[in-house]
Amino acid sequence: MQDQKHALSFQDIILALHRFWARQGCVILQPYDMEMGAGTFHPATTLRSLGPKPWAAAYVQPSRRPSDGRYGENPNRLQHYYQYQVIMKPSPAEAQELLLASYREIGLDPLRHDFRFVEDDWESPTLGAWGLGWEIWCDGMEVGQFTYFQQVGGIAVDVPSFEMTYGLERLAMYVQGVENVYSLRFNDAEGPRALSYGDVFLRAEKDYSAHNFEVADTDMLMRHFGDAETECGALVGRGLAQPAYDQCIKASHLFNLLDARGVISVTERAAYIGRVRALAKACAEAWVAGEKEHG
Protein backbone atom coordinates (compact mmCIF):
# COMPACT_ATOMS: atom_id res chain seq x y z
CA MET A 1 0.00 0.00 0.00
CA GLN A 2 1.46 3.37 -0.89
CA ASP A 3 2.55 5.32 2.06
CA GLN A 4 -0.25 4.45 4.42
CA LYS A 5 1.05 6.75 7.13
CA HIS A 6 -0.01 9.63 4.96
CA ALA A 7 -3.27 8.04 3.91
CA LEU A 8 -6.39 10.06 4.59
CA SER A 9 -7.90 10.04 8.07
CA PHE A 10 -11.44 8.75 8.56
CA GLN A 11 -12.93 12.20 8.55
CA ASP A 12 -10.80 13.32 5.60
CA ILE A 13 -12.22 10.46 3.56
CA ILE A 14 -15.71 11.76 4.29
CA LEU A 15 -14.68 15.30 3.42
CA ALA A 16 -13.03 14.13 0.17
CA LEU A 17 -16.19 12.25 -0.83
CA HIS A 18 -18.34 15.25 0.04
CA ARG A 19 -16.20 17.52 -2.15
CA PHE A 20 -16.18 15.01 -4.99
CA TRP A 21 -19.93 14.37 -5.10
CA ALA A 22 -20.73 18.04 -4.57
CA ARG A 23 -18.76 18.71 -7.77
CA GLN A 24 -21.02 16.20 -9.54
CA GLY A 25 -24.03 18.30 -8.60
CA CYS A 26 -25.23 16.34 -5.56
CA VAL A 27 -26.73 18.20 -2.65
CA ILE A 28 -24.71 17.31 0.41
CA LEU A 29 -27.21 16.38 3.08
CA GLN A 30 -26.62 15.68 6.76
CA PRO A 31 -27.56 12.34 8.33
CA TYR A 32 -31.27 11.74 8.81
CA ASP A 33 -32.18 12.23 12.46
CA MET A 34 -33.55 8.76 13.06
CA GLU A 35 -32.16 5.31 13.81
CA MET A 36 -32.00 3.15 10.70
CA GLY A 37 -30.29 0.00 9.43
CA ALA A 38 -28.82 1.44 6.27
CA GLY A 39 -28.37 4.65 4.34
CA THR A 40 -30.94 3.46 1.83
CA PHE A 41 -33.69 4.09 4.43
CA HIS A 42 -32.98 7.84 4.38
CA PRO A 43 -35.99 9.49 2.68
CA ALA A 44 -33.50 11.23 0.37
CA THR A 45 -33.03 7.78 -1.19
CA THR A 46 -36.27 5.83 -0.71
CA LEU A 47 -38.86 8.53 -1.27
CA ARG A 48 -36.86 10.59 -3.73
CA SER A 49 -36.12 7.59 -5.95
CA LEU A 50 -39.86 7.53 -6.69
CA GLY A 51 -41.67 9.86 -9.04
CA PRO A 52 -40.33 11.47 -12.20
CA LYS A 53 -38.36 14.44 -10.78
CA PRO A 54 -34.56 14.52 -11.15
CA TRP A 55 -32.62 14.28 -7.89
CA ALA A 56 -29.02 13.99 -6.70
CA ALA A 57 -27.79 13.77 -3.13
CA ALA A 58 -24.88 12.52 -1.06
CA TYR A 59 -24.72 12.09 2.69
CA VAL A 60 -23.28 10.11 5.56
CA GLN A 61 -25.80 7.97 7.41
CA PRO A 62 -25.09 6.31 10.77
CA SER A 63 -26.37 2.77 10.36
CA ARG A 64 -27.52 0.63 13.23
CA ARG A 65 -27.48 -3.15 13.09
CA PRO A 66 -28.26 -4.22 16.64
CA SER A 67 -27.45 -7.90 15.99
CA ASP A 68 -23.94 -7.04 14.78
CA GLY A 69 -22.84 -5.74 18.19
CA ARG A 70 -19.75 -7.55 19.53
CA TYR A 71 -19.11 -5.58 22.75
CA GLY A 72 -16.18 -3.87 21.06
CA GLU A 73 -14.29 -7.17 20.88
CA ASN A 74 -14.47 -7.97 17.17
CA PRO A 75 -12.07 -5.93 15.02
CA ASN A 76 -14.45 -5.98 12.02
CA ARG A 77 -18.00 -5.80 13.33
CA LEU A 78 -19.96 -2.91 14.73
CA GLN A 79 -23.58 -2.40 15.66
CA HIS A 80 -23.23 1.27 14.72
CA TYR A 81 -21.24 2.33 11.69
CA TYR A 82 -21.26 4.85 8.90
CA GLN A 83 -22.43 4.47 5.37
CA TYR A 84 -21.67 7.01 2.72
CA GLN A 85 -24.59 7.15 0.36
CA VAL A 86 -24.97 8.67 -3.09
CA ILE A 87 -28.18 8.77 -5.11
CA MET A 88 -28.57 10.22 -8.60
CA LYS A 89 -31.78 10.21 -10.62
CA PRO A 90 -31.78 9.52 -13.49
CA SER A 91 -28.71 7.31 -13.27
CA PRO A 92 -25.98 9.11 -15.23
CA ALA A 93 -24.47 7.35 -18.25
CA GLU A 94 -21.02 7.66 -16.69
CA ALA A 95 -22.00 6.32 -13.24
CA GLN A 96 -19.23 3.70 -13.19
CA GLU A 97 -16.58 6.23 -14.18
CA LEU A 98 -17.76 8.65 -11.48
CA LEU A 99 -17.56 5.95 -8.91
CA LEU A 100 -14.02 4.96 -9.88
CA ALA A 101 -12.98 8.62 -9.87
CA SER A 102 -14.30 8.88 -6.31
CA TYR A 103 -12.00 6.02 -5.24
CA ARG A 104 -9.05 7.79 -6.87
CA GLU A 105 -9.97 10.82 -4.79
CA ILE A 106 -9.37 8.92 -1.55
CA GLY A 107 -6.08 7.38 -2.62
CA LEU A 108 -7.03 4.12 -4.37
CA ASP A 109 -5.45 4.12 -7.82
CA PRO A 110 -7.10 1.66 -10.25
CA LEU A 111 -3.81 1.14 -12.08
CA ARG A 112 -2.23 -0.12 -8.87
CA HIS A 113 -5.20 -1.94 -7.37
CA ASP A 114 -7.52 -4.57 -8.77
CA PHE A 115 -10.99 -3.02 -9.10
CA ARG A 116 -13.87 -5.27 -10.06
CA PHE A 117 -17.59 -5.14 -10.58
CA VAL A 118 -18.93 -8.39 -9.13
CA GLU A 119 -22.59 -9.32 -9.68
CA ASP A 120 -24.81 -8.38 -6.77
CA ASP A 121 -28.57 -8.27 -7.00
CA TRP A 122 -29.64 -5.97 -4.22
CA GLU A 123 -32.91 -6.54 -2.45
CA SER A 124 -34.49 -5.10 0.67
CA PRO A 125 -37.48 -7.18 1.75
CA THR A 126 -38.47 -4.63 4.39
CA LEU A 127 -38.48 -1.77 1.88
CA GLY A 128 -40.08 -3.80 -0.91
CA ALA A 129 -37.15 -2.68 -3.05
CA TRP A 130 -34.76 -4.28 -5.50
CA GLY A 131 -32.19 -3.36 -8.08
CA LEU A 132 -29.35 -4.77 -10.12
CA GLY A 133 -25.71 -3.85 -9.85
CA TRP A 134 -22.46 -4.98 -8.34
CA GLU A 135 -20.32 -5.19 -5.28
CA ILE A 136 -17.23 -3.13 -5.94
CA TRP A 137 -14.11 -5.08 -5.09
CA CYS A 138 -10.69 -3.61 -4.53
CA ASP A 139 -7.98 -6.28 -4.18
CA GLY A 140 -10.57 -8.84 -3.14
CA MET A 141 -12.17 -6.48 -0.60
CA GLU A 142 -15.74 -5.26 -0.96
CA VAL A 143 -15.46 -1.49 -0.82
CA GLY A 144 -18.90 -0.51 -1.99
CA GLN A 145 -22.23 -1.45 -3.42
CA PHE A 146 -23.57 -0.07 -6.69
CA THR A 147 -27.24 -0.47 -7.60
CA TYR A 148 -29.57 0.63 -10.35
CA PHE A 149 -32.90 0.85 -8.54
CA GLN A 150 -35.79 -0.89 -10.28
CA GLN A 151 -38.44 -0.97 -7.57
CA VAL A 152 -38.94 0.83 -4.25
CA GLY A 153 -41.80 0.44 -1.79
CA GLY A 154 -43.34 -2.15 -4.09
CA ILE A 155 -43.57 0.44 -6.90
CA ALA A 156 -41.61 0.14 -10.16
CA VAL A 157 -39.57 3.36 -10.38
CA ASP A 158 -40.42 5.91 -13.07
CA VAL A 159 -36.78 6.66 -13.74
CA PRO A 160 -34.04 4.32 -12.49
CA SER A 161 -31.64 5.89 -10.00
CA PHE A 162 -28.03 5.02 -9.39
CA GLU A 163 -27.29 4.30 -5.75
CA MET A 164 -23.79 3.94 -4.34
CA THR A 165 -23.08 2.85 -0.81
CA TYR A 166 -19.61 2.93 0.71
CA GLY A 167 -19.01 1.16 4.02
CA LEU A 168 -16.83 3.92 5.41
CA GLU A 169 -15.05 2.04 8.21
CA ARG A 170 -14.09 -0.86 5.99
CA LEU A 171 -12.96 1.47 3.23
CA ALA A 172 -10.92 3.56 5.67
CA MET A 173 -9.30 0.44 7.15
CA TYR A 174 -8.22 -0.49 3.66
CA VAL A 175 -6.93 2.96 2.81
CA GLN A 176 -5.05 3.25 6.11
CA GLY A 177 -3.82 -0.36 6.13
CA VAL A 178 -5.33 -1.03 9.55
CA GLU A 179 -6.64 -4.44 10.68
CA ASN A 180 -8.68 -3.31 13.65
CA VAL A 181 -11.47 -0.81 13.18
CA TYR A 182 -10.78 0.75 16.57
CA SER A 183 -7.23 1.68 15.47
CA LEU A 184 -8.47 3.79 12.56
CA ARG A 185 -7.12 7.29 12.68
CA PHE A 186 -10.25 9.37 12.98
CA ASN A 187 -8.57 12.74 12.53
CA ASP A 188 -5.06 13.98 11.75
CA ALA A 189 -2.62 11.72 13.60
CA GLU A 190 -0.03 14.49 13.74
CA GLY A 191 -2.49 17.19 14.70
CA PRO A 192 -2.87 18.63 18.19
CA ARG A 193 -5.62 16.20 19.30
CA ALA A 194 -5.13 12.91 17.52
CA LEU A 195 -8.03 10.55 18.16
CA SER A 196 -8.68 7.00 17.01
CA TYR A 197 -12.00 5.42 16.06
CA GLY A 198 -11.83 3.53 19.35
CA ASP A 199 -11.42 6.80 21.27
CA VAL A 200 -14.66 7.97 19.70
CA PHE A 201 -16.78 4.81 19.64
CA LEU A 202 -15.44 1.92 21.75
CA ARG A 203 -17.41 2.76 24.88
CA ALA A 204 -20.60 3.18 22.86
CA GLU A 205 -20.13 -0.20 21.15
CA LYS A 206 -19.83 -1.94 24.53
CA ASP A 207 -22.83 -0.18 26.04
CA TYR A 208 -25.08 -0.59 23.02
CA SER A 209 -24.17 -4.28 22.70
CA ALA A 210 -25.42 -4.79 26.25
CA HIS A 211 -28.53 -2.76 25.47
CA ASN A 212 -29.27 -4.58 22.22
CA PHE A 213 -28.71 -8.11 23.48
CA GLU A 214 -29.51 -7.99 27.20
CA VAL A 215 -31.31 -4.96 28.49
CA ALA A 216 -33.69 -3.40 25.99
CA ASP A 217 -37.25 -3.73 27.33
CA THR A 218 -38.91 -6.03 24.84
CA ASP A 219 -42.48 -5.41 26.00
CA MET A 220 -41.95 -1.72 25.52
CA LEU A 221 -40.35 -2.28 22.10
CA MET A 222 -43.31 -4.35 20.98
CA ARG A 223 -45.70 -1.69 22.18
CA HIS A 224 -43.74 0.97 20.32
CA PHE A 225 -43.77 -1.15 17.20
CA GLY A 226 -47.54 -1.29 17.33
CA ASP A 227 -47.76 2.47 18.00
CA ALA A 228 -45.50 3.28 15.04
CA GLU A 229 -47.55 1.02 12.80
CA THR A 230 -50.81 2.69 13.84
CA GLU A 231 -49.43 6.21 13.55
CA CYS A 232 -47.97 5.43 10.13
CA GLY A 233 -51.38 4.32 8.89
CA ALA A 234 -53.06 7.45 10.27
CA LEU A 235 -50.51 9.75 8.62
CA VAL A 236 -50.74 7.95 5.29
CA GLY A 237 -54.49 8.51 5.50
CA ARG A 238 -53.82 12.26 5.66
CA GLY A 239 -51.38 12.12 2.72
CA LEU A 240 -48.44 13.12 4.94
CA ALA A 241 -45.94 10.84 3.26
CA GLN A 242 -42.67 11.73 4.94
CA PRO A 243 -43.97 11.91 8.52
CA ALA A 244 -45.66 8.57 7.86
CA TYR A 245 -42.40 7.21 6.52
CA ASP A 246 -40.63 8.30 9.73
CA GLN A 247 -42.90 5.87 11.57
CA CYS A 248 -42.00 3.14 9.10
CA ILE A 249 -38.27 3.73 9.76
CA LYS A 250 -39.01 3.61 13.47
CA ALA A 251 -40.89 0.31 13.17
CA SER A 252 -38.05 -1.19 11.16
CA HIS A 253 -35.47 -0.29 13.81
CA LEU A 254 -37.71 -1.57 16.61
CA PHE A 255 -38.00 -4.85 14.77
CA ASN A 256 -34.19 -5.05 14.47
CA LEU A 257 -33.86 -4.51 18.22
CA LEU A 258 -36.45 -7.17 19.00
CA ASP A 259 -34.63 -9.51 16.65
CA ALA A 260 -31.33 -8.87 18.44
CA ARG A 261 -33.01 -9.60 21.76
CA GLY A 262 -33.92 -12.99 20.33
CA VAL A 263 -37.65 -12.75 21.08
CA ILE A 264 -38.81 -13.16 17.49
CA SER A 265 -39.25 -16.71 16.24
CA VAL A 266 -38.49 -17.74 12.69
CA THR A 267 -42.14 -17.72 11.66
CA GLU A 268 -42.88 -14.42 13.39
CA ARG A 269 -39.86 -12.90 11.71
CA ALA A 270 -41.36 -13.16 8.23
CA ALA A 271 -44.61 -11.68 9.55
CA TYR A 272 -42.82 -8.66 11.09
CA ILE A 273 -40.89 -8.03 7.87
CA GLY A 274 -44.18 -8.19 5.98
CA ARG A 275 -45.71 -5.60 8.32
CA VAL A 276 -42.82 -3.18 7.80
CA ARG A 277 -42.97 -3.75 4.05
CA ALA A 278 -46.68 -2.93 4.07
CA LEU A 279 -45.88 0.39 5.81
CA ALA A 280 -43.10 1.18 3.32
CA LYS A 281 -45.47 0.46 0.46
CA ALA A 282 -48.21 2.69 1.85
CA CYS A 283 -45.71 5.53 2.41
CA ALA A 284 -44.27 5.12 -1.10
CA GLU A 285 -47.74 5.27 -2.62
CA ALA A 286 -48.61 8.37 -0.59
CA TRP A 287 -45.35 9.99 -1.69
CA VAL A 288 -45.95 9.25 -5.37
CA ALA A 289 -49.54 10.50 -5.14
CA GLY A 290 -48.28 13.75 -3.57
CA GLU A 291 -45.58 14.24 -6.19
CA LYS A 292 -48.14 13.94 -8.98
CA GLU A 293 -50.49 16.34 -7.16
CA HIS A 294 -47.82 19.00 -6.57
CA GLY A 295 -46.58 18.59 -10.12
Binding site: M1, N76, L111, R112, H113, D114, R116, D139, G140, Y174
Partner: peptide
Protein backbone atom coordinates in the same frame (compact mmCIF):
# COMPACT_ATOMS: atom_id res chain seq x y z
CA UNK B 1 -5.83 -15.88 -7.49
CA UNK B 2 -6.51 -13.89 -10.61
CA UNK B 3 -6.39 -10.11 -10.97
CA UNK B 4 -7.81 -8.18 -13.92
CA UNK B 5 -4.84 -5.89 -14.32
CA UNK B 6 -1.08 -5.88 -14.78
CA UNK B 7 -0.51 -3.36 -11.99
CA UNK B 8 2.16 -0.70 -12.19
CA UNK B 9 3.91 -2.05 -9.06
CA UNK B 10 4.02 -5.64 -10.35
CA UNK B 11 1.04 -6.59 -8.21
CA UNK B 12 2.63 -5.98 -4.80
CA UNK B 13 -0.27 -3.85 -3.52
CA UNK B 14 -2.84 -6.29 -4.93
CA UNK B 15 -1.19 -9.27 -3.22
CA UNK B 16 -0.81 -7.40 0.08
CA UNK B 17 -4.45 -6.33 -0.09
CA UNK B 18 -5.77 -9.79 -0.85
CA UNK B 19 -3.67 -11.32 1.93
CA UNK B 20 -5.14 -8.84 4.36
CA UNK B 21 -8.70 -9.54 3.23
CA UNK B 22 -8.20 -13.27 3.63
CA UNK B 23 -6.68 -12.79 7.09
CA UNK B 24 -9.84 -10.95 8.19
CA UNK B 25 -12.11 -13.57 6.59
CA UNK B 26 -10.30 -16.43 8.28
CA UNK B 27 -10.22 -14.56 11.60
CA UNK B 28 -14.02 -14.69 11.43
Amino acid sequence: FVANIAANDGGAAIIAGNERVLRARLAD
